[in-house]
Each structure stands twice: as structure tokens, then as C-alpha cells.
């Protein structure tokens, strides 16, 4: 099972990355308990920030950004973690999502998570992240995890992380493996032959 984690924290180290790592571990443990091996890769959006801006301005992707896009495309599931900025996910997080290939997230199980200064911003999960991922046709999991500064001193956060990890593991085990489409592969179901284009016009 391949899991890609998108961590959009801006500082280094960041609590966003910390939460991402905990969610990854919880998911990994839950999957391993069900006998499923896990390969995971964490995309630190911070390290791609300049590349993301470049591709927005010029459409030319650095090899590093291209690799990150591919990791997202090839994943069986995603864990996304954004800091909360001005009522929403951060601009850099959104910009990274904006430069993913169309359809990359369709049908992808996604565990949503966010960090923020106080618990008063926890609705960011359901009013910002969830609609964004739903628009991209991802399967957002019911349990999403928000960690405010004070949560890092509370045992409740661990329980929420474990619950979310188990949920993602259960869904991944139950779902058929995600099929990867390639419109440049003439043998793939997504390839459009010219005969069908003529027929359709």
C-alpha cells in the first residue's frame, strides 16, 4: 500500500510535520496489524515552494516537483496536513494542490488534518479542506484531525490520531486498489481512439 503525505508547514521543524508524521505512523501501524505492508513518502511542500510558484507562472516543473506530483498520482491514499491561515488552509498548500495534474486525486481516500494556534479554528477541516478535496473527487474520510497548540499537551490528540489512522487503514483494506489511468497509453481504458472521436462529433 502506498501512502503519500502532504505536509504544508512553513517552519522547520513544524507542528504540521509533527502531526503528519504521527498520522503516518498510526496508519502504518493499523495497516500492518491487518497484515498489509506500507510504503510511505512525505512531501514537504516547503521544500518545493519556489518550484510551485515557478510552475504556476511558467508551467515548467522542476524534476523535484514532477517527482512529487508522481508520488501523489501513484499513491493508494493521501494524508494531507495544512496549517490554518486566515480562516483556511495555507496559500502554499492550495498552490501545491493547484499544480497537481487534473484527476490525480479522483477516487483517492484522503485523511484530512490541520494545525492551528487555537481550537477555535478547527472548523477549517470541514469548511475548507473537505470541500476542496471533495471538489477534486477524493474520498475524504469522516474522521479528520485538528491539532491546536494546546493539543500537544493533551492525551486526547493521540486517541484522535489513532482513530483516524485506523479508519484510513480499514477503508484502504476494504476498497479495491485504485487504478491508475494514463491517457498516453493506447492500451489504457482512458485512451481515446480517433474512431471514437469521429463517432462522437
Amino acid at each position: 500500500m502506498r501512502i503519500a503525505i502532504i505536509a504544508a508547514g512553513l517552519s522547520e521543524p513544524s507542528s504540521t510535520r509533527l502531526l503528519a508524521d504521527r498520522l503516518e505512523k498510526a496508519t502504518r501501524t493499523a495497516l500492518q496489524n491487518q497484515g498489509t505492508a506500507v510504503e510511505s513518502t512525505t512531501i514537504e511542500v516547503r521544500t518545493l515552494a519556489h518550484d510551485v510558484v515557478d510552475v504556476l507562472l511558467t508551467r515548467v516543473a522542476s524534476p523535484e516537483l514532477e517527482a512529487a506530483r508522481q508520488q501523489v498520482q501513484d499513491a493508494d491514499a493521501l494524508i494531507v496536513v495544512s496549517p490554518t491561515f486566515t480562516m483556511s488552509y495555507s496559500g502554499l498548500f492550495k498552490s501545491f494542490i493547484d499544480v497537481l495534474e487534473d484527476g490525480s486525486l479522483a477516487g483517492m481516500p484522503v485523511l484530512l488534518a490541520a494545525t492551528g494556534g487555537t481550537a477555535r479554528h478547527s472548523m477549517v477541516l470541514d469548511v475548507a479542506l473537505r470541500p476542496l478535496l471533495s471538489y477534486l473527487k477524493a474520498l475524504t474520510l469522516p474522521t479528520a484531525v485538528y491539532a491546536s497548540a494546546e493539543d500537544w499537551g493533551s492525551p486526547g490528540l493521540d486517541a484522535r490520531i489513532e482513530k483516524a489512522g485506523r479508519e484510513l487503514a480499514d477503508v484502504l483494506v476494504a476498497l479495491p486498489r485504485r487504478t491508475r489511468s494514463d491517457p498516453f497509453d493506447a492500451d489504457s481504458p482512458d485512451f481515446v481512439s480517433f474512431e471514437s472521436m469521429l463517432g462522437g462529433s
Binding site: V192, S193, E195, M197
Partner: peptide, 23 residues
Amino acid sequence: SPQIAEQAAFYGDGFFHNNIFWN
């Protein structure tokens, strides 16, 4: 757009890629 590569191929016409500004 793979559809245009396919169109060129279907007719046996030429295919031109501008090969600039993009990877």
C-alpha cells in the same frame, strides 16, 4: 493532448511539438 497525437497518427499526417517553454 493525446487526442491530437492520435489525430495526426490516424491520418498519417505530420506531428509537430513546439518543444519550447515546457519540460
